[in-house]
């Protein structure tokens, strides 16, 4: 599931039938090709403007996530200047609540999920200074529980996704000492499973998205020595199926979004050479809509912003030529991360 950011996956056609890997009937050379950069830029900009179709309406509550996906994609493609910075920044700030947290859109309740996106978008534009850092970081730190875990908002849902969000956000803001990092790490480790991966709470099954969150949080806190890199790396590299695509759990279908979740983990633990990168590049390129731009979960499915982001970010992690490098832990361009942590 790529529901890490509370996605509306399989909302319209709940597919209960995910069995073994599907094989694609078309000949190889038909599917080759290159990344249609211009088309994807056009597609993302059009999604930004389109507010009336059903998908946009359904996604209204997580528009801040959408902004992060779209803008990061544009930045990786080298086209961030195609959007009006000030307009975006002022809209982002309108999503903030008195408590310091951000909602997914203006008028929607505050939640960790959108607070991270807001911080990331501001970081992309090098505009962190518009934030009241004290206020945002107090909101995030206030959601840590006694056992080290984090709630997503005042209603108390606990999930290691929120641990990642808290740690990533506070690190970007240079405020990690606001939380108890030691217990935060301990809680994440309590969610480690038989396969070396991580679940959303203790006892929950590992899946690729959750692995990204937990490995990312451990990476940012310099705690990757707690991960069995060979065991987890083998589980992750076995996500690559015959078609070249990656699935999120054993015996599931491949999906472009796992290019991000799986690849970023493999890179953080230095095991990305265990997969066949070339085959994966082909799989992602094959999921492009070559006429209208955008990337879908699997070849010939309908495109959307977040699979476009995951596809492009995945290609960046695969060192596809002409793309800016993206950082596997902070999910921002490397140059942005280096600017935050190294330039001083």
């Amino acid at each position: 599931m790529c529901t890490i950011f509370n996605m509306f996956t399989r909302m319209f056609l709940p597919d209960f039938h995910e069995f073994h890997q599907i094989a694609y009937g078309r000949p190889i050379n038909d599917r080759m090709g290159e990344l249609k950069i211009e088309k994807h830029v056009k597609y993302i900009l059009s999604v930004e403007k389109r507010k009336d179709d059903f998908v946009s309406v359904v996604m209204e509550h997580l528009r801040l996530n959408g902004a992060y996906w779209g803008l990061t994609t544009l930045d990786i493609l080298g086209k961030l200047d195609a959007v009006d910075q000030d307009e975006v920044v002022s809209w982002v700030m309108q999503c903030q609540h008195e408590c310091g947290g951000f909602g997914g859109n203006i008028g929607h309740d505050p939640h960790m999920l959108y607070t991270l996106s807001a911080i990331q978008v501001l970081a992309l534009f090098d505009k962190i200074e518009v934030l009241d850092i004290e206020k945002v970081s107090n909101y995030i730190a206030g959601l840590q529980n006694d056992d080290g875990s984090f709630s997503g908002d005042m209603w108390g849902e606990v999930d290691t996704r929120f641990s990642y969000i808290a740690i990533c956000s506070l690190a970007i803001l240079h405020q990690l000492d606001k939380i108890n990092v030691e217990t935060a790490v301990k809680y994440i480790l309590s969610c480690q499973n038989l396969d070396g991966g991580f679940g959303c709470t203790p006892g929950a099954e590992s899946h690729a998205g959750q692995n990204f969150c937990c490995v990312g949080a451990l990476a940012i806190t310099g705690s990757l020595h707690h991960v069995d890199k060979d065991l987890l790396g083998w589980w992750l590299c076995e996500r690559q199926v015959k078609s070249g695509g990656l699935n999120g759990r054993p015996e599931k279908l491949p999906d472009v979004c796992y290019s991000w979740w799986v690849l970023s983990c493999l890179i953080m633990i230095d095991r990305v050479h265990w997969i066949d990168k070339e085959k994966l590049v082909k799989f992602i390129l094959d999921c492009q809509d070559k006429e209208n731009g955008g990337i879908s979960d699997r070849p010939d499915d309908a495109v959307d912003v977040f699979h476009t982001y995951f596809g492009v970010a995945g290609l960046s992690l695969l060192e596809y030529p002409g793309l800016k490098a993206i950082d596997p832990a902070y999910a921002l361009p490397v140059e942005v991360v280096d600017r935050i942590f190294v330039s001083k």
Partner: peptide, 13 residues
Amino acid sequence: VDTRRYLCSSPMT
């Protein structure tokens, strides 16, 4: 891509 970026001592980690 630097696959050792998060396995070394650095300000990011």
